[in-house]
Write a protein that binds this DNA or RNA. Structure first.
Lengths: 202, 202
DNA sequence: ACCTGACTTTTTTGGTAGAATAGTCAACAA
DNA sequence: TTGTTGACTATTCTACCAAAAAAGTCAGGT
């Protein structure tokens, strides 16, 4: 679950694994390769981690942790709800970039994540939804936003963001996604955020 | 390309094929089945249509034609740009329902449409974009809407709609999508349309 | 406590034979 | 001439298996 209780050695392994995953994705990285990168044997990896999947899981978990922490820091600020939302959009794009490099969000259609990793995304998504809901709810209370249901609006917002991403991957899919492509998506999200904010402003 | 120049017999074939596709999808319908439904031989089908794929293409084309016609009718009305947009959203959901029944939008991940059918969707998408662009552009000229680029906004709108759809299919995927599920998506699109309209209103 | 080579088990891959289905055509009928 | 067909061929899908690759285990060494 947590990744803060990892030993230094475990962190080194996660680093090496992350480097490999970033290049080739989960399916195309072998335990032997990771081990060789670290100058140890494959069997040693199993001393520190139960399975290969568990390593992958923790690599994702680390990135998500970073995101969640940043997000919680945003919530504590004294800025307006609008500014918080904009900052959220920004961090959202940054996280996407990270996960993209890890080939976690499969660009291919065969996006069959193992249940455990799916679960990770699910709990992450839940946290994110709570976060969005509280920004919107706060904004409503402060008379900065105007909407019927902050919960439903938060859900919509989350769905639009995920949707734009999916749409994007679907059409780009061929060739690797480079910086330029991510910029393009970021740009679209920016335009959306403007209209959206205006749409819920009081 | 067109399907208005079809003979009566061809229309009957398309009807029979559509009925089958609606139940089982392209992959699970054989030419023999369609032929048997019509009480003719498979060879006869090839007298009227080049390939099985061509039949499927024309089935889709018919539905898209209906949509485009309705859309063009909307454009000619004297209603406000906002009302036109809302009507567009409405028709959009209806079309989705139709195509869903035809199992055209695959709910599975393996959404590998044949290039020809992909092309069909592409030209459809282009028409749709022009349509959206002109509504937004008109709205801007009439000082009803306020935005920097109607073209980019139209594109965003299209992407959001497609994205919400993709997101929806991805999460529902298991089991067939029934009326209830479509209602749920329609509901979300409705909420989006409210916020979006407010976001671009002058 | 940490590490490893040698091992077993599981998963992936590639090929292939047979079945299912798309698509063709010469001949027949209206 | 237009439409139809049974019998044909060509292509694609499926089920299967054996070999290769990779995951995962373990007894024993430092």
């Amino acid at each position: 679950m947590n990744c803060s209780t990892n030993t230094d050695k475990q962190k080194l392994i996660l680093d090496a694994a992350q480097y490999r995953f970033a290049h080739y994705g989960l399916g195309k990285v072998t335990m032997d390769e990771i081990a060789t990168d670290l100058g140890i044997s494959k069997a040693s990896l199993y001393y520190y981690f139960e399975t290969k999947e568990e390593i992958f899981r923790q690599v994702i978990a680390r990135e998500q942790d970073v995101f969640i922490n940043k997000i919680e820091a945003i919530l504590k600020r004294k800025s307006s709800a609008s500014e918080k939302l904009l900052e959220y959009f920004h961090q959202h794009v940054l996280l996407l970039d990270k996960l993209l490099n890890l080939k976690i969000i499969s660009l291919q259609a065969d996006n069959v994540l193992h249940p455990i990793i799916r679960e990770l995304f699910k709990t992450f998504s839940t946290k994110e939804l709570v976060f969005l809901g509280s920004i919107l709810s706060d904004g409503k209370i402060q008379n900065e936003f105007s909407m019927e249901s902050p919960e439903k609006t938060a859900s919509l917002l989350q769905h639009v963001l995920l949707g734009l991403r999916l749409r994007f991957f679907k059409t780009v899919k061929n060739r690797d996604i480079g910086e330029m492509e991510v910029k393009s998506l970021a740009h679209e999200i920016k335009l959306f955020s403007k209209i959206f904010l205006r749409g819920i402003s009081h």
